[in-house]
Nucleic acid binder design. Structure first.
Length: 494
RNA sequence: GGGCGCGUAGCUCAAUAGGCAGAGCAGCGGCCUUUUAAGCCGCGGGUUUAGGGUUCGAUUCCCUACGCGCUCACCA
């Protein structure tokens, strides 16, 4: 079966495996043959600090990554979770039989080894373990990628991320960065009185965003369920319930196109804070990004996509109206409907999309002419009401809501509102939205009556916020594709 | 879904106006006791993504399929 597809190198390794088993050496041991006293990094540090007494043995484990056999002695590097350490293997130390017939013949790059020996420093100054005893603790049957170039093929890197990770240390580093970002977020919110909660991933009605959902089914209940596209409507229920500050970090699922900044499932942070508005949220967002930068030890300056970005608060705040006016000379407030705005855009040779609504046209102006210029951290304030059904209207302008999105490095990172807590207005907005979607089947997306009922019990004045953890990781890891910051990004099955 | 590009040895990459498919690493055999992309000598390894077409001859040109990348569209 599978054996027929093996290449030469795989066959050689399997033959070695068989020979090891034939000589009753277990290639997949149950226990280490001697204790692991140090990680690679600890052994090097202990040696450099003089913490090891003379002839003190260290026990190390790791994957064999390089070998340089020079006759009767060899140098190699083994790698564990802490890094690499060089080992020196002398035939007169470990014995001719072991050196010639085991180490040289049976051990391959990629195998897991246990060694014990004494630390010394080589002529070139590298801390190295002089091996007194060597054992194979895990055999590897596939050859590793090129030791110098690593694994480059993008498709293989994503499909077989385990190979990418073992061959490319800088890829491992991305996911350390990602974990530290999440840790910094939790610490910031926990320290500021936010309660971490978990709300349903499987929802009978989806809402809180515009995306199309994934649909699944509960067999016993014989009920279709949606994978959530947002946490918003559930978290707001919790404010009705009396929690003042809540947050959730979790997975959202959106059945939309895949791109360098979209994966069908992605990790979202949302928080809701009672008794504040979107200005209060802005200050927190600034503080949060500073906290993340501190956790990563970066200072306030980061590099993204060749740009130097200064995270020092306060960030630029500009309304969408003003930003578009500056970029295009068009003040969309002067054009109260889609037709007049489209005419103004056409007059300015800005190619309006013919069938677009006014909100869409504004979005087009913004996306084409403003968004790409938002390199330094910027809050864009005050969005058209028709594309913001969950945000409170401006007191003096019912066509505009108190909403911001924030942008860094040209990336749209997150979204916030002064939350709409007027249940009558909320119902009206949901209805308007549904009517605006031409040809929509009402039954396919009924109003979330329970959410509206919750608002009728009273939600305090609230500022809410959502941001993509994946995109934040792209920013701080300086990666231009979301697939680089998701361990197992979605690909077509082959 | 549309457009453009890419797919060669285990890995990283070459190659041909259409004319025997190559290198480095890795593997195998040999030499080598302070190397670190170790070095030296020798050897093996390919359905050139898959299927079809044109041709005396296709990795190369054409068509189809599959996958990936970029991009557009979609994405309150």
């Amino acid at each position: 079966m599978e054996e027929l597809d093996l290449n030469e190198q795989q066959r050689v390794r399997r033959q070695k495996l068989g020979e090891l088993q034939a000589t009753s050496r277990d290639p997949y041991v149950r226990r280490l043959p001697w204790p692991r006293t140090h990680t690679a990094a600890d052994a090097i540090a202990a040696h450099l600090d003089g913490r090891l007494v003379a002839e003190e043995e260290v026990g190390l484990v790791g994957r064999l990554m390089t070998v340089r056999i020079m006759g009767k002695a060899s140098f190699a590097h083994i790698e564990d979770g802490s890094g690499r350490i060089q080992i020196h293997i002398r035939r007169d130390r470990i014995g001719e039989e072991v050196y010639d017939n085991f180490f040289k013949k049976m051990i391959d790059l990629g195998d897991f080894l246990a060694v014990r020996g004494v630390m010394f420093t080589t002529r070139t100054g590298e801390p190295t373990c002089e091996v007194r005893e060597l054992a194979l603790i895990g055999k590897t049957l596939n050859p590793l990628p090129d030791k110098w170039h690593g694994l480059r093929d993008v498709e293989t890197r994503y499909r077989q991320r385990y190979v990418d990770l073992l061959a490319n240390p800088e890829v491992r580093e991305i996911f350390v960065t990602r974990a530290r970002i999440v840790k910094a977020i939790r610490r910031y919110l926990d320290d500021n009185g936010f309660l971490e909660v978990e709300t349903p991933v499987l929802q009978p009605i989806y809402g809180g965003a515009a995306a199309r959902p994934f649909i699944t089914h509960h067999n016993q209940l014989d009920q279709d369920l949606f994978l959530r596209i947002s946490f918003e409507l559930y978290l707001k229920r919790l404010l009705v319930g009396g929690y003042e500050r809540v947050y959730e970090i979790g997975r959202d699922f959106r059945n939309e196109g895949i791109s360098f900044k979209h994966n069908p499932e992605f990790t979202q942070l949302e928080w809701y804070e009672a008794y504040t508005d979107y200005h209060g949220v802005m200050r927190r967002v600034e503080e949060l990004l500073v906290a993340i930068a501190r956790e990563l030890g970066r200072g306030m300056t980061i590099t993204y996509n060749g740009h130097t970005i200064d995270l020092t608060p306060p960030w630029r705040r500009i309304t969408m109206r003003e930003a578009i006016l500056q970029a295009t000379g068009i003040d969309y407030q002067r054009y109260p409907d889609a037709a007049s705005l489209a005419a103004a855009m056409a007059a300015a040779r800005l190619h309006p999309e013919q069938t677009a609504s006014r909100g869409k046209l504004i979005d087009q102006l913004f996306g084409d002419h403003v968004e790409p210029t938002l390199i330094q951290p910027t809050f864009i304030l005050d969005y058209p009401v028709e594309i913001s059904p969950l945000a409170k209207k401006k007191a003096d302008d019912p066509t505009t809501v108190e909403r911001f999105e924030y942008f860094i490095g040209g990336l749209e990172l997150g979204n916030a509102f002064t939350e709409l807590n007027d249940p009558i207005d909320q119902r009206a907005r949901f209805v308007e939205l549904r009517e605006a979607v031409a040809g929509a089947d009402e039954n396919s997306h009924p109003l979330d009556e329970d959410f509206l009922n919750a608002l009728c019990y009273g939600m305090p004045p609230t500022g809410g916020f959502g941001t993509g953890i994946d995109r934040l990781t792209m920013l701080f890891a300086d990666k231009q594709s979301i697939r680089e910051v998701i361990l197992f990004p979605h690909l077509r099955t082959t």
